[in-house]
Nucleic acid binder design. Structure first.
Lengths: 132, 132
DNA sequence: AATATATCAGACTATATTGGTCGGATATTA
DNA sequence: TAATATCCGACCAATATAGTCTGATATATT
């Protein structure tokens, strides 16, 4: 429980690796997969997700690869998780709006409070902080 | 990802239910299972885990059940999770102690930073806060 | 004592999620 | 045209979680 997925882990490793190079340098999937001993295909998929999500730019063809596109300080961990894994279960909860799930929320689920805390924490944590 | 298990959820629901009754009142598994529509056997197991963990007291026999044993403000969420699910992956990380996993930690895993933050958050959150 | 009811305990199955693989398409450089 | 890299979805394998079943033990009531 409370686990971070491999895809997210691989994505962060890849970003940190690229961050330590010249900002215009191109890094291939293979380079990262070999260096950190990560399954190539799976890493490839996560890099594709980051490209789709606008976090990195892709360069096709021989000597192709990826480079970081945005300032990692400007993207929070919730956005990041959702770009890679899709919508999280950690729904936003607006106490002052009307909520059709009040009974499910209050009667059934103290979990909501935990999720609110987690979401809040990750919204205030940038990818840059994590990759250093 | 980042999900809380059903057992934890059921445990919190049970505690909140008991908290709203007289502190000496006995609550059976059945009472809770019926009221919140939770699978009886699974709820039974989580209550047993809480009894083993010293959070509740069990009363055997007819009209038996459970009652809260400790002050829920004095137990943090990490302790609670571990009583119910066993050791979490969110290891403690002591930066000033020597660590045989430094390379794995620094080179491979930004995850460590995320886990440290989560652990810190849950250590400073009491079960009482969540069950109200 | 016998019976009914509740917790206790572990093995077992079903389901869902995640991790990883494969095949083939598209883009680009040489 | 050949080689290399990203792209994309379908697929299978491994793991984790959810839930079920069987039987034991403790105790209150009759």
């Amino acid at each position: 429980m409370l686990k971070i997925t491999r895809k997210v882990e691989y994505a962060l490793i890849a970003l940190r690796h690229m961050q330590n190079k010249d900002s215009q340098a191109i890094t291939s999937t293979k380079e990262i997969a070999v260096m950190y001993d990560i399954p190539l295909e799976l890493l490839a998929k996560t890099l594709q997700l980051m490209a789709r999500g606008g976090i990195v730019d892709a360069v096709h063809g021989p000597n192709g690869g990826y480079k970081i596109k945005v300032n990692l300080e400007n993207i929070n961990m919730i956005e990041f998780f959702e770009k890679i894994e899709g919508p999280l279960g950690l729904m936003d909860c607006y106490f002052d709006s009307d909520c059709t799930l009040i009974s499910a929320c209050n009667i059934r689920s103290p979990i909501q409070k935990i999720n609110d805390n987690m979401r809040n924490m990750f919204e205030n944590m940038s990818v840059g902080e994590i990759t250093q």
